[in-house]
């Protein structure tokens, strides 16, 4: 199963931005479960895009003004939710932020 791990935190999480992942990435790459991912600049650097009636609408900032904002993401491919939970729980950000696990929608057969 493929999952997206969305790593979120409040403002205080910013101080961890350059912490690295304390060996987590190495272990998960070794296990062959990571298929992509990156850390992100803070939401102050975000630009939000909408197109309504052919008009491009741009906003400075994230799409939702919530306390917790996404600071990074990882795409994983593993056996099941239990393994995804184990992988997420080991991530250093789980100890100060929040990690949301979302199953990736697999396209139905025939759709590429």
């Amino acid at each position: 199963m493929k999952y997206l791990l969305m790593i979120a935190g409040d403002e205080s999480a910013a101080e961890h931005a350059n912490d690295g992942c304390g060996g987590w990435s190495e272990e998960m790459v070794e296990r062959g479960v990571v298929t992509g991912g990156a850390g992100l600049y803070p939401p102050t650097e975000a630009t939000t895009v909408r197109v309504r009636e052919n008009e491009l609408l741009l906003t400075d900032g994230p799409f939702a003004e919530t306390k917790e904002q996404i600071g990074g993401f990882v795409l994983i491919d593993c056996a099941d939710l239990d393994e995804a939970i184990e992988i997420a729980a080991k991530h250093p950000a789980a100890s100060y932020g929040t990690i949301e696990i979302r199953p990736v929608l697999e396209p139905p057969p025939g759709v590429v």
């Binding site: 199963m1 999952y3 056996a79 099941d80 939710l81 239990d82 995804a84 696990i101 199953p103």
Partner: peptide, 14 residues
């Protein structure tokens, strides 16, 4: 089904 919750008795460590 969608989130892939495994149909099993968890392994001993869980």
């Amino acid at each position: 089904q969608n989130a892939g919750i495994p149909y099993r008795v968890p392994p001993a460590h869980l």
